[in-house]
């Protein structure tokens, strides 16, 4: 009976993940030109591992992803720590969630306009006296990366924030209360009581956000297109470019397979430790 109930979902997912996964691996051993498949052996992989663009896309994904994740985590935890017992914030919490409710493509256009096309960010920074002339955000490596990082931080910090607030509010307030009666300051309570208790949830939240961040695509597609000189090309964008711009499907599939292996290793290491499927 339980197998019968779970089977439709599993079959559906296999159809949409397992079959394409196997197809991608198979395709990665071929040169594909339109409908012409020529067996290539490991040639795609040899070319891939010698391809500076490929390594650059992995590096860019890692660098932009980890910086964005670090900022998002720090800000979300700080804001959550200040907000979770605050009745005033409780009513207005939706304000902190607004960025998450925009479509990623819309957010990307918004920041493209603010940073580049309308130069609002430059203008505001000039007005407060931080810079003297407009910055060409998309023309240089780090400013372009920074633009993508900002876009991600603005949209997804709320994701971590709402999880942390939920976790903090879910904790037993009596423990905090008794610590307060013993004379502990709220900062000490947070560091020594609340924070250690929410460690598993922090891990879960970071895993989920970390996975989504490595798939960063829409903002790259809309804001930078990988420029300048490929400095903002993520691995997802690399696969897309190889597949659907140069129509080198076999080659793109080999990159997809490498990404799949990385995903599986990460999932095996982290996910099993922090998610529990059923009652023990």
């Amino acid at each position: 009976m339980p197998y019968f109930l779970v089977a439709p979902a599993v079959i559906y997912l296999m159809f949409i993940t397992l079959y394409p996964g196997v197809y991608a691996i198979y395709q990665s051993f071929f040169f594909v030109r339109f409908n012409q498949w020529t067996f290539a052996g490991l040639a795609n992989y040899q070319q891939l591992f010698a391809d500076a663009d490929f390594w650059a896309s992995l590096w860019n994904t890692f660098v932009m992803g980890s910086i964005a994740l670090a900022i998002e985590f720090t800000v979300a935890l700080t804001v959550a720590a200040f907000a979770y017992r605050d009745p005033f914030v409780r009513g207005w919490r939706i304000v902190f969630l607004l960025p998450m409710l925009f479509m990623t493509s819309a957010v990307s256009f918004m920041w493209k306009l603010a940073f580049n096309d309308a130069r609002v960010v430059s203008d505001l920074l000039t007005r407060v006296g931080l810079i003297e002339s407009n910055i060409d955000f998309l023309g240089k490596v780090w400013p372009a990366r920074f633009t993508l990082i900002m876009t991600d931080v603005w949209q997804w910090t709320p994701f971590l924030f709402i999880i942390f607030v939920g976790a903090l509010q879910g904790q037993d307030s009596e423990i905090e209360e008794s610590a307060r009666l013993d004379g502990a300051k709220w900062r000490q309570i947070f560091w020594h009581i609340s924070l250690p208790m929410m460690m598993p949830i922090i891990a879960v939240a970071l895993i989920l956000r970390g996975i989504d961040i490595t798939t960063m695509f829409a903002s790259v597609f809309i804001i930078t297109g990988g420029t300048p000189g490929g400095a903002t090309e993520t691995i997802s964008f690399f696969i897309y470019r190889m597949g659907f711009k140069t129509f080198n499907f076999g080659y793109a599939s080999s990159a997809a397979f490498v990404m799949l292996v990385i995903t599986i290793v990460v999932a095996q290491t982290f996910v099993k430790r922090f998610f529990r499927p059923g009652r023990d």
Partner: peptide, 24 residues
Amino acid sequence: RDDIGFYILSTRMMAPAIVAIPIF
């Protein structure tokens, strides 16, 4: 049961770009 649960969960971890070409 747990393996099936993890299999379902693991599809959440799969980047769209990995399966994009075959799905197309």
